[in-house]
Nucleic acid binder design. Structure first.
Lengths: 258, 258
DNA sequence: CGTGCGCTTGAGATACTTCAATGCTAGTGG
DNA sequence: CCACTAGCATTGAAGTATCTCAAGCGCACG
């Protein structure tokens, strides 16, 4: 069973859940056996090829999703921060083609997949929420695709930092231009498709140019305009990077409280 | 209005639709104003930033989805072949961050988004189908992510060809190891994040090594084992590349005909 | 018969990698 | 409290995969 404050936190982090009535939400949480789980850094949340029967929403901390090729090359697919669902694929596939590991200590709201699927069938707002999350993750993945295919190292790294900055800011975890940033240089490398050595050199450059400091688990953006320009990003591009996709109501004419 | 053979074709290409009763399917098609649309090569199916109110399933021909950066760099996100839904994002966003263009003459089954969304709310099988499509597209995008981030040119190109081969084979459009392949070298380049010049050199290599012929709108795989090995693929990896994701029924215990 | 698009090829440039070594810091065990 | 280790950041030098620029060629099309 899950306490009341965690449900509040869920709604707060994940505004779309506000579309469910309090009653619906509680009923939903009970039915899906919602519970809080904590993980230590490096702990596996999902292990590649091992069947999963849960879906979880990150309440605090950082995690990352990745695959490693037979010869050891690793690609990080996504970083997960508070408000993110760790995986939506898992509603379709029990055995997933990637692993997820905690980067910092994390706290998750975990639910049974089976009841989510029931929910998708019976509670309209649940169906909306998970469909929207799936579309959002797809959009994020495809944005990353463009980055990996067609951007150089400086662009890739600047974009990664900026996206994580806005992501954190959206959930109130980055007030000014400095914020907690638990990635090591090898995480940045594996997310951008570069080498740690090269990441290091680019970061040094950015540091000595007084643009960006990535050190000791913190990021400090010292020249936002310059960084945005290096990242080939419009200042408003990231405001359109919402915690959840917008526009759903616009299309289908359903009021948020339906 | 849509003719009966097109509905049959839809079910045939897209087996998941078999989970709807014939009656449901016809009702659904009527309600969503289903209709056949044909496009000539190079014609836009979706234009970046322009609102769309339709969703469509490709019945014949090829199309591709891509974005271009302000300075002209282009990244192809996906190739669409018969049986694919052109976009699922469009249920969430009216204005999409990419364009879709026909590569060959195409024929599509086009439906109104609004009624699909109604369908998702009211017809359980519709909800399943679209959720599953979304998850499938996400899985494909993330597979591509690994490729772009961590594979070299030969691997990238071999994998692209092999995936398209299996994709076509799955819908009965590639019987033996030769099949129609309308991509130009610049499409391959923009999908793999390489230059056309480099793609050309790799293709020549593969050709002179008697492994793969890409010429005049056709692909001929002359040494499948070798190509699989260059692509770092297990022979069964592609059988697990279904037209639609599997495992849905396994998880939720819903019979296909529910 | 030109014109354009796609394929091909060469030569030189460069962004990124590989290999290898060094130092720093935190944690661990004695 | 010190020695030892492991993980991470840093840096240099050399190598290479891929790109850029540039030119020529063939074929389809009007």
């Amino acid at each position: 069973m899950v306490d009341d404050t965690s449900l509040n936190r869920l709604v707060e982090l994940f505004p779309r859940f506000a579309s469910m009535s309090r009653h619906e939400l509680v009923k939903f949480a009970e039915k899906s056996n919602a519970r809080i789980v904590e993980d230590a850094p490096r702990e596996f949340i999902i292990r590649k090829g091992v069947a999963t029967h849960e879906i979880s929403c990150l309440l605090s901390g950082w995690a990352y999703r990745y695959t490693v090729l037979p010869d050891g090359r690793r690609q990080i697919l996504a970083f997960k921060t508070p408000g993110d669902f760790v995986t939506v694929h898992c509603l379709c596939q029990t055995e997933l083609p990637f692993s997820v590991q905690a980067l910092t200590p994390t706290k998750r709201l975990v639910m049974d997949i089976k009841s989510i699927i029931d929910g998708v069938r019976t509670i309209p707002s649940v169906s909306h929420i998970f469909y929207a999350i799936g579309c959002h993750d797809l959009a994020v993945a495809e944005d990353a695709l463009v980055g990996l295919g067609r951007r150089d190292a400086t662009e890739k790294i600047s974009r990664l930092v900026l996206k994580l900055y806005y992501k954190q800011r959206n959930v109130g975890l980055a007030d000014d231009l400095a914020f907690e940033f638990p990635l090591r240089q090898n995480h940045i490398a594996d997310a951008t498709g570069l080498t740690t050595v090269h990441v290091n050199r680019i970061l040094r450059q950015l540091r000595s140019a007084q643009i960006l400091n990535v050190e000791k688990g913190m990021v400090e953006i010292r020249n936002l305009d310059e960084l945005l320009s290096l990242a080939d990003m419009a200042p408003d591009e990231l405001d359109s990077y919402p915690v959840l996709p917008r526009g759903w109501e616009d299309i289908n004419g359903i009021e948020a409280t339906a």
